[in-house]
């Protein structure tokens, strides 16, 4: 399978702060990937680097083998991008925005854009500034889709939308994916809405990739283990313990299995995607505050719940 987006030790520093550090990621083509991370994790930085809006401090980013910064002429037509809060020229009418898309993109699919606007009930003669937030997001998405990109990058497209608008936005997106098979990477600070539409997961936290892989595979390899209070060291020698919490009598672990799981003394449970993501994020949060190990293990779960 070919690779849509590949980053190698990609790093970006603002002043003394690293927004992204040694980020290595390979996103297979044809996937709909969720980029999950808390605010300030570097999601926007990663997406901006991927589309050539930013220059990396170190490392490399390539989309379909092209550097968006050094080969913008070849790379840009293959990339679609919807920035956070979906900025549009507010004084342009929807029709004028489509004209903009047509004038600036050789492969712009005007018929597709018009058809989608009609389907969404967005009047072409309305100024963008007069549209609702949900409609503006839809227009921005349709503009990006009509460019016929091979890789579509969306920066927190759902964060400012109400639940209904979210569902409609995702429907438009999934229709396009079903039709054209494009690769999508969309960021969010919560997994909730994305769980149903995404088949690939990237967890970004503390400016690094914590986990990246096929959603089903991740679901399959992550288990919650509950047993009498005990030390997790034996288990941790084979599998990766993401999170451990202890009460007086009971120990609960969230592990990533690295092979068959033989755990007779544990009760093995499935773990929801949301809990799993939270475990990764809180693990990182714990490391960052440098709490003593015991305190961290006890408090870890509460931090994000």
């Amino acid at each position: 399978m070919s690779t849509a987006l590949e980053t190698t030790k990609l790093s970006k520093r603002y002043g003394r702060t690293w927004a992204l550090q040694d980020c290595t990621l390979s996103l297979p083509a044809g996937r709909v990937a969720a980029l999950i991370g808390p605010n300030g994790a570097g999601k926007t930085t990663l997406l901006h680097l991927a589309v050539g809006l930013l220059e990396p401090t170190a490392g490399e980013v390539q989309a379909f083998g092209l550097s968006p910064l050094r080969q913008p002429g070849e790379a840009l037509p293959r990339l679609g991008f919807v920035a956070q809060d979906t900025p549009l020229y507010k004084g342009f009418t929807v029709a004028e925005l489509l004209t903009l898309g047509r004038k600036l993109n050789p492969g712009f699919d005007d018929a597709l854009a018009r058809a989608r606007m009609q389907k969404l009930g967005i009047p072409l003669n309305r100024r963008a500034g007069k549209l609702s937030g949900g409609q503006q997001a839809q227009v921005a998405l349709v503009l990006a889709l009509a460019k016929r990109p091979d890789l579509l990058l969306l920066d927190e497209p759902l964060s400012s939308l109400d639940p209904l608008a979210r569902r409609e936005f995702l429907r438009t997106l999934m229709d396009a994916v079903a039709e054209s098979g494009l690769t999508v990477l969309l960021s969010s600070h919560i997994i909730g809405d994305l769980e149903r539409v995404c088949d690939y997961l990237v967890i970004l936290s503390a400016s690094q990739v914590q986990l990246a892989g096929d959603m089903q595979e991740i679901q399959r390899t992550h288990k919650r283990l509950i047993g009498p209070r005990q030390d997790e060291a034996a288990l941790a020698s084979v599998h990766t313990v993401i999170e451990a919490s202890h009460t007086d009598r009971q120990t609960t672990l969230l592990v990533r299995t690295n092979g068959p799981l033989f755990a007779p003394s544990w009760e093995v449970q499935e773990v929801s995607m949301e809990d799993m993501v939270l475990a990764y994020l809180s693990q990182q949060a714990g490391d960052r505050v440098q709490a003593p190990p015991s305190a961290r293990e006890q408090d870890g779960r509460e931090v994000f719940q």
């Binding site: 589309v51 050539g52 809006l53 913008p72 002429g73 840009l76 037509p77 990339l79 679609g80 991008f81 920035a83 809060d85 900025p87 549009l88 020229y89 507010k90 903009l100 898309g101 600036l104 993109n105 050789p106 492969g107 921005a140 503009l143 460019k147």
Partner: peptide, 13 residues
């Protein structure tokens, strides 16, 4: 108005 994010990610450099 953050529209540079829109205009700089069209197909022209």
């Amino acid at each position: 108005q953050r529209t540079h994010l829109l205009i700089w990610t069209q197909s022209i450099t």
